[in-house]
Design a protein around this nucleic acid. Sequence first.
DNA 1: TATGAATGAGACTTCATTCAT
DNA 2: TATGAATGAAGTCTCATTCAT
Lengths: 207, 207, 207, 207
Amino acid sequence: MPDPKSLIASNIKDKELVSVRRQELVNAAVELFVRKGFHKTTVREIAREFGMSMGTLYDYIRTKEDILFLVCDHISKSVSDKLQSTLTGKKDPAENLRNAIRDYFTIIDEIEDYTLLLYQETKSLNREERKYVLDAENGLVDIFEGIITQGIKEKIFHIDKETARLLAHNIMVEGQMWAFRRWALRKNFTLKQYIKLQTDLITKALR
Amino acid sequence: MPDPKSLIASNIKDKELVSVRRQELVNAAVELFVRKGFHKTTVREIAREFGMSMGTLYDYIRTKEDILFLVCDHISKSVSDKLQSTLTGKKDPAENLRNAIRDYFTIIDEIEDYTLLLYQETKSLNREERKYVLDAENGLVDIFEGIITQGIKEKIFHIDKETARLLAHNIMVEGQMWAFRRWALRKNFTLKQYIKLQTDLITKALR
Amino acid sequence: MPDPKSLIASNIKDKELVSVRRQELVNAAVELFVRKGFHKTTVREIAREFGMSMGTLYDYIRTKEDILFLVCDHISKSVSDKLQSTLTGKKDPAENLRNAIRDYFTIIDEIEDYTLLLYQETKSLNREERKYVLDAENGLVDIFEGIITQGIKEKIFHIDKETARLLAHNIMVEGQMWAFRRWALRKNFTLKQYIKLQTDLITKALR
Amino acid sequence: MPDPKSLIASNIKDKELVSVRRQELVNAAVELFVRKGFHKTTVREIAREFGMSMGTLYDYIRTKEDILFLVCDHISKSVSDKLQSTLTGKKDPAENLRNAIRDYFTIIDEIEDYTLLLYQETKSLNREERKYVLDAENGLVDIFEGIITQGIKEKIFHIDKETARLLAHNIMVEGQMWAFRRWALRKNFTLKQYIKLQTDLITKALR
DNA sequence: TATGAATGAGACTTCATTCAT
DNA sequence: TATGAATGAAGTCTCATTCAT
């Protein structure tokens, strides 16, 4: 998989600089997008937050949508990286799954605003860019599915392969819903409770 | 709860006419929003599809966002109404739940595009309008929660009250994810399979 | 041949109004284009001269190039119309030719600035639009060729058919060069002299 | 006549280097101008084609228009030089004229694109620069006029002095029209035919 | 009540030119 | 002398909303 960022043309020759500046750009844009949404944020505002002129901003991207892509890609990668780094090669699939769920939900909680953004604005990306982001998502589903499948092999979990895939999807969505249904869930649960209850439900379903 | 539509001012005195026209307006707008998204649809396009002039359109609403609200409210109500109408007062909570899940998922599948729209554009509503839509959502959660609670009372389901609320949320989201993760789920499951597998997982969790 | 103006989309429904306003638009733009050239004239300037807002201007056209097309088409039609109206069905081809040359050169002289504009900016039109303008030009060539051909038939002119076509082109270009080489020709000739000398040269070539 | 190129200031001291680089610059720019027109070609593109940085490019010129002037001057000089080099001091003015016409038209045909460019973009030059280019043109007119005048003196051609000047202009324009009316002329004539027919017409006019 | 032409602010984007390194 | 990142003014175009008829 080629680096998605190389999809985006730039006038600047110094690749290193492009990389650094784009990171700064993402940092500037993400806050605005979270606060106002992609469509209601103007490029001028982003440039101001970016601390550079409009012209300079456009030396690093070609269109406003490129910025959205950089932002979405960043968030998406960020979740993947964080989750990957917490995954240990523990032996017990049951414990592995519990830990993965806990870590994933915790990450979501930490970057709740970003999750929401990724969730709501991905549709504004073009085909190719959207595919990148969704592929990253799929990578996460694969992780959960892998753990469950291991448990099935070891006869610890008692569901079939198809259900394993579905359950992996469910876990992903249950993580995300902690962000996008916060208005309702926060009234009833703390993160800790939420993790515990969801984990219990999943565990029971695996018996 | 006051009729949400009365939130939106109108120049027209004849309440009956307002109601009829707004329904036509919603029908015109919803197709466009589904196809192009709210932000990329222009009021001019809506007026054309609506078969009325810009001026007349603005006799029934005040801002473009009002249209979005009418649309979201309509979709949201539509799901509630359909689901309510299939709910029977059967005695067995287990069967009631199975039926409700099946009916809800089926409704989602039927109006998949609308669900997606509701899902992605609600954020563009203002505080007050968004609250309306989310309240309607909550009504659905209550329905599922009610069935589960009944099962708990009858000692058929073995989970606590808090988990019941959470499970109700889960069911809602699992219905919606059939729409918003269709790009992934459709590869692996038909609607029928999806309903069966999710129902099984929920059933196991209730034991 | 469909009316070229119908090639250009408009937001305005009243066809009559579109026609009137476009004429006003052409009048506003042509002066600016003559003075500053197409590229150096801004749409804002055109709107100001047009006496309407930018938005309104763009209700009558879609792009800046549309304005250029309207202008070029107008000039081109204008020359054709004027020439056509002076053409009499006189019997003597020699006299007909002399008159046509005189009238054509005189028209060019009258709208010298416009001729120059047409001449220099046609290249900025897109394929289809350029074709329209060039086709109109060809119509004029045909007129001159027709007169010459008639003279050949009547054994008054002694050149072959191919040369007749070429000579028709020459006459066209000799008319235009009165505009685009004015910096040189005006030093040596008045319009009257120019017409006489060119007519004499052509007449001798026809012997 | 001072060297036109000295009109354009340069940061670089080494006159020799300036001259060499400017020639390379012209070569780079002319292709782009032919393909896209002056206004639609960006300085960045020219620099890239030139193989130098923006900064370096601007060491050799002051404004984008300077480049256009260098290009126009180059083309204009190029035609003059080529034509001069073919002119022989033959004795017979009639043959001299035929040869000059043939050579001139042939040169035009060879650098048709450049002729067109010169023709269409001269207007974008400023007063002073445009004068340079037009003066070079006049030099060519003088050449043709000279040959004709010689013929008049030798009683071979039978037209007056004023007509001689006009005819010289006509010849120039008839050469150029082979380029700028190619869309029409190429349908009917090859270069060879075109030369022959135009030469015949001119010859007849001289009798 | 209905029409649709008119508004004008503001959106995104480009690009000739400069200047610190 | 050479580089190329940075500038910022200006360009074209859009569109939600209004109001005279």
